[in-house]
Nucleic acid binder design. Structure first.
Lengths: 122, 122, 122, 122
DNA sequence: GTGGTCTAGACCACC
DNA sequence: GTGGTCTAGACCACA
């Protein structure tokens, strides 16, 4: 796994897990890899993974069975959905719209780019 | 001037100057405040302002007349426009579309939010 | 390490690192000393070393692994070579030839000085 | 007149005057423009020109007749020649040869470039 | 441990 | 007055 330099690694890992939960690649009650295993897998310091798991646990997205491992909680998708949506609407979008204004990009142009990008996904 | 904690101060200052260039509050060949003056103005250490000015100079947005001060370069707006637009299209937009996909937000919904936010600006 | 007064310290450090890269004392993927370590080593403030590392990172000569340290990038030698060679041919040489002209030094004389200086290196 | 950012302006002016003396564009006992006149001519602060004249006066290249102006001294060319030649051989050349070594440029290559540049002057 | 940022204060060359 | 550099020391997030 590759990491950008803008964001801290443990947050990038968290984001990736959240995406997998949203897209249901992993879902309620699945066991996720152990800290060490995951760390080895993505070539990262175990402390870093620990930090990710801790964060997601605090948010109720993961839970821990002592001695066994970490699991995706039943409400995980719901929580992630809510959190991300709030963040998206209240933080990302306003910034985005402001940028569009400064760059003189109107909504039609945005729609064009969107249609194009959707086609490319097929 | 107030600063958020997510981003370093010197970058926030840079962003602010770029916005002023885009909105033509300051434009080609204008002299901008001296390092010390600006620093006092926004209650920040001169070194921090120096860092901002240096960064923008490296990007060709500002230039320096020795012993006189910093000036907005003729092509400043053009450079800022290009840089920010690339960043927007290659980084912000893909993330936006990905997020819309994951959060099940379709384009109509986005447009609604956009229209609302535009109204609020007036 | 000793520093001349003509040039700023952080640039002299950068030059030294570049020379070591050219002469392959340090090469692709090597880790270089941490900011603090290097600073202590050459008796200079950490900020000054930080500035050097930052500069070389901007040029693609160094890169950073978060929390681990700075490394010489794979293409470092290539980049340094290209940069320095351009600088040499487009700036140093024209000045050299102009100076030779003004000082009435012909090419044979230059060659003599060169041969002498080469001998002294052995 | 345009100035580079690497060197202080007053030194660039001094260099230019020295070149004109070496090439005999201006020579022994010529009167050179007054500080104000020259400053206006090259669009520079009079203090800066003052500094140049002062420097060259200290080196015996210019002399001043009070109330009349600055003049090129009789031995000007001789002095400039000696000073520049020493500087050239003891400072510029060693640095140049070191660079050639690091960049793997041998003397033949240098000669080729020289021949080419000489042709282009004709 | 690593880098990154910021402050405070100093000194210098230069215009 | 201007920028430019450097030091000392602090604090923080991160691996």
């Amino acid at each position: 796994m590759e990491f950008s330099n803008n964001n801290s690694i443990y947050l990038q890992i968290a984001d990736r897990l959240c995406e997998q939960i949203l897209s249901e690649e992993i879902s309620g009650e699945d066991r996720i890899p152990s800290v060490r295993e995951f760390a080895a897998d993505i070539q990262v310091n175990p402390n870093t993974v620990m930090r990710t798991y801790g964060l997601l646990q605090d948010q109720g997205i993961l839970y821990n069975k002592r001695g066994i491992g970490y699991f995706v909680s039943e409400k995980a998708k719901q929580i992630v959905m809510k959190t991300k949506k709030e963040e998206f609407i209240q933080e990302s979008l306003p910034e985005l719209f402001k940028m569009m204004d400064l760059l003189n990009i109107d909504f039609n142009e945005l729609e064009n780019i969107y249609q194009t990008s959707v086609k490319h996904q097929n």
